[in-house]
C-alpha cells in the first residue's frame, strides 16, 4: 500500500462520507430506527472481506478467524435486511385495523 493508493482511498472515503451525510440528513425521524437497521445490514458488506479470508489457503488459524467473520457478517446481512423490511412494511399512511 503506497501513498498514492492511500490518497485515492481517502478521496473515496471523503466523497462517500459527504454524500452519505447529505442523504442521511434527509431521512425523517420517523424512519431513524429502520435507518440504523439498514446501515447495519449494508455494513455487513464486510462479509466480502471475510469470504476471501475464509476461502483462501492461509492456514488453520486464518480459516477459523475468517469463518467467525463470515458468520458474524452473515448474521448482520441476513438479519439486518429481514428486520429492516419487516419494520418498513408496517409504516403506512392510512391505518388498517
Amino acid at each position: 500500500m503506497d501513498f498514492d493508493h492511500v490518497l485515492f482511498a481517502l478521496y473515496i472515503f471523503m466523497l462517500a462520507a459527504f454524500l452519505g451525510v447529505q442523504v442521511i440528513a434527509k431521512v425523517p425521524q420517523l424512519l431513524h430506527t429502520p435507518l440504523m437497521a439498514f446501515t447495519n445490514a449494508i455494513s455487513g458488506v464486510s462479509l466480502v472481506a471475510s469470504l476471501v479470508i475464509a476461502g483462501a489457503e492461509r492456514g488453520l488459524v486464518s480459516s477459523i478467524l475468517g469463518t467467525i467473520a463470515v458468520f458474524a457478517a452473515t448474521v448482520n446481512v441476513v438479519g439486518g435486511f429481514l428486520i429492516t423490511d419487516r419494520m418498513l412494511k408496517m409504516f403506512r399512511k392510512k391505518g388498517g385495523s
Binding site: 475464509a54 476461502g55 463470515v70 458468520f71 458474524a72 452473515t74 448474521v75 441476513v78 439486518g80
Partner: peptide, 14 residues
C-alpha cells in the same frame, strides 16, 4: 469454511 460460516450465520440471522 465459507459454507459453514454462511449457514451458521443464516441460522442465527433469520
Amino acid at each position: 469454511w465459507i459454507l459453514g460460516g454462511v449457514v451458521l450465520g443464516t441460522v442465527v440471522g433469520v
